[in-house]
Design a protein around this nucleic acid. Structure first.
Lengths: 243, 243
DNA sequence: ACCTGAACACCGTTCAAGT
DNA sequence: ACCTGAACACCGTTCAAGT
């Protein structure tokens, strides 16, 4: 037992890998993995502590030992999904920003259903993000953004990027909000050529492919080229800040 | 009683303003007004059908006659808040876009707590927005955006604008998620000058004033000048699309 | 240290009635 | 037409126990 050694021995209850009756062998990692699995396959509305516990074969309260509040688990999910977003290494600032924005979106694409969690809450997984913030500030300075516009430029990039993608993957009404897509199609079909000529001309190109005029989100109707354009808009806009 | 006149007389049950016992004199407008009132004063988490009903002195189910699903009421709230956003009239496209974006943000500023509803769900109050979409498309064409980039440009403007503001007013953790702000301050205070020199230099200017490094949202810490910069970034970016 | 069980104060919504 | 009342199937979370 090596007594007297103050090495933080943890009670040795489950020592030797022996399973204790009534113990579910839970861990923060297992709970987190199951949470992401549930969100990915069953949608965000299935992400409840009780449903999760059932999936893990455990009492709801078992989860609370590892995550004291549901929001702690939410934070962990967001952190995990965003953990893969490593900004690229040394290139020109434009190339870096383009790459970073696409990496961010790619992470959300892997777990589209978590998007509302990222867009709706204050992003908080700070610790791991300081490197990213430092990199972004460095690149913005490299681009020529003056110090007195640095915070605004930073907020523009983050707000625009996170905001666009959150919008793209925004929650679709529900499983079947009776004929919500039908009504949308009706509205688009009924666009009047005289009242809304430009919209009328564009309607087939915009239908279900543009904000406000769609009934599916980015999970089933990704806005790839629009996001490409958006990054170019942002890059050109940042460049204009430097003159 | 003017019988025989098919003018859609409504049963005359409450005719003459006489109150019926057990009737609460509800209406879609009254429910909607109360919903916005509750959201504004008590926050989004207080916006439940049951809490709302209590506030109106009525059974929860009474609301369901006027709004068959909670989501119908959510839609109505969003539509109402955004109803005030009338795009400005004829000016240069840059002036128009700047004005429109600020009007949109001003509407959210009037009801900051509804922001998560706007950012999180697919925006759906279509009918009233066709005029706005037509106007935006017109201005983008006026700006010189070619037809084959029109949808992308439209999505960039809407996605960026709605996204930024949604982010700015994103939900703060909760009433008191024990020392969440404290931990954030610690992180910022502990920024290492050697590992993160740019961030270190900017830290006092960014603390609680920039995305990821804040613990309050736009309701208490509005990002006015960042949004100004963001609109200029968008405008310059759109302009770059035309060359 | 880690989990169970019962209980509290909530939800949205359906269904059958009342007037 | 418009509202009540009871019921169903959920929530997150606290508190007291168990091992």
């Amino acid at each position: 037992m090596a007594d007297g050694m103050g090495t933080g021995v943890e009670d040795a209850a489950t020592a030797g890998g022996r399973k204790r009756a009534g113990r579910a062998e839970l861990s923060p990692e297992k709970v987190l993995a199951k949470a992401i699995e549930v969100i990915d396959s069953d949608g965000l509305e299935a992400f409840s502590m009780r449903h999760l516990a059932k999936g893990l074969g455990v009492t709801p309260m078992a989860l609370y030992w590892h995550y004291p509040k549901r929001h702690d688990l939410v934070r962990a999910v967001v952190a995990e999904v965003l953990a893969g977003v490593v900004p690229a290494t040394a290139t020109h600032w434009e190339e870096w920003l383009r790459d970073y924005m696409h990496r961010f979106r790619a992470a959300i694409t892997r777990h589209p259903n978590v998007a509302p969690l990222i867009g709706g809450q204050l992003i908080s997984n700070v610790s791991g993000n300081l490197d990213m913030i430092e990199a972004l500030l460095t690149r913005l300075q490299e681009a020529g953004v003056p110090d007195h516009k640095m915070v605004q430029a930073y907020n523009s990039v983050i707000g625009g990027m996170v905001g666009f993608v959150s919008q793209e993957f925004a929650l679709v009404p529900s499983s079947s909000d009776d004929g919500w897509d039908g009504r949308m199609k009706e509205v688009i079909g009924g666009i009047d050529a005289e009242r809304h000529p430009h919209l009328h001309a564009m309607r087939s190109r915009m239908e279900n492919r543009s904000f406000i005029l769609r009934w599916e989100n980015g999970a089933t109707r990704p806005m790839d080229d629009s996001f490409d354009t958006f990054t170019e808009v942002m890059i050109a806009g940042i460049r204009a800040l430097t003159v």
